[in-house]
């Protein structure tokens, strides 16, 4: 901070701290309106972000609505133990990580492949149509998205289920088969998000230095060689960053879509930590137990983010910080 000061106001070079502080105060007073402007959004952050962070303490207390957060008694790690020892702990962990990793494995390369393919095609009506159509599902709401899945998979009626039937797959209620839940979730996500996810890679490809293509041409490289030696290396920085962010969110598996896709038949594979937190916490009113699960989840996420970022920095020099 002080370094910045010196550069801008040579007058305050005097090594007296008091003078410096006075100068800072003068500047703050001069721009008092900016503090007024920032007051409202900062209050928002404090009320809706920081107060809930402090509210984490109920995970270590026996929260009682009558006594309130402060009046409730401390119980230490009681609710954490209760969660770890519950018979379904490993099942929910397995479901959460299973869906996340499967989603990452398929959903991460998909937009890269689409961007590489689009980059090969000349600008024109065909390319524009593919882009327009493939971005569109991103704007469909989760509720509508799940309805589209359900409707298309309705036995004998839905288009996708009829197609599978033509391919010789037995005609069944796909949404009710536990072993299919992960695939339906992940592939419908690919359907919805691949196009939009490709935008960032298309932008990165558009920024590739044309001289590299010229050089590849001179060397007689085929299109595939050009993709492997020019296009893919140019996508590495942005994909590493996105991979870090995705891995850091492994446990943050979205509540909205899974909750809507659940039905009594598929619960064995579709119950994940976020839906469980909602059910025991808000529907079952076990606030402390549910908050403890939430805390556990956030801690794992944070650790993952830090570890993955560290590894990425060591291996590739691309990292978030």
């Amino acid at each position: 901070m002080s370094k910045l000061h010196h550069e801008m106001h040579p007058v305050s070079l005097l090594p007296m701290q008091a003078a410096r502080r006075k100068e800072a105060l003068r500047k703050m007073l001069r721009h008092w309106q900016l503090y007024l402007v920032i007051l409202l959004p900062i209050s928002y952050l404090i009320i809706f972000k920081y107060v809930p962070m402090a509210g984490i303490m109920i995970a270590f207390k026996d929260y009682n609505v009558v006594k309130g957060i402060w009046g409730s008694s401390w119980v230490g790690l009681k609710y954490f133990h209760q969660f770890f020892e519950s018979p379904n702990f490993w099942l929910y962990m397995k479901n959460t990580l299973g869906i996340s990793l499967y989603g990452l494995l398929v959903g991460f390369p998909a937009p890269i492949i689409l961007a590489l393919a689009l980059n090969e095609v000349r600008n024109g009506l065909f390319k524009k149509s593919v882009q327009l159509v493939s971005y569109a599902p991103y704007f469909i709401s989760t509720v509508i998205m799940v309805s589209i899945i359900v409707v298309n998979l309705t036995p004998n009626v839905g288009m996708v289920s009829k197609l599978f039937q033509m391919l010789g797959v037995e005609n069944t209620n796909f949404m009710g088969i536990p072993s299919l839940f992960k695939s339906i979730y992940v592939w419908s996500d690919v359907w919805q998000h691949t196009g939009y996810g490709a935008i960032i890679y298309i932008a990165a490809l558009a920024g590739v230095n044309p001289e590299l293509y010229e050089a590849a041409k001179v060397d007689g490289a085929s299109r595939i060689q050009k993709i492997i030696n020019v296009d893919i290396p140019s996508l590495i920085p942005v994909s590493v960053i996105l991979l870090i962010l995705n891995l850091g969110n492994l446990m943050k598996l979205g509540f909205e879509k899974i909750y809507l896709m659940q039905n009594p038949l598929n619960l064995a594979t579709s119950e994940v930590i976020s839906t469980y937190v909602y059910k025991v916490g808000l529907l079952g009113s076990s606030f402390s137990f549910s908050a403890a699960i939430g805390v556990f989840n956030s801690v794992i996420n944070l650790v993952l983010l830090v570890v993955v970022n560290f590894i990425a920095r060591k291996l590739s020099n691309n990292s978030l910080w």
Binding site: L45, F48, V51, P52, I56, I58, V277, G294, V295, L305
Partner: peptide, 22 residues
């Protein structure tokens, strides 16, 4: 200082239950 205040909220969160209680 304000920037740090902002970035922290991207890394930590209270979770569903404290959010609901607020």
């Amino acid at each position: 200082i304000f920037m740090v205040l902002l970035v922290i909220t991207m890394m930590f969160e209270g979770g569903l239950i404290p959010y609901y209680l607020v």
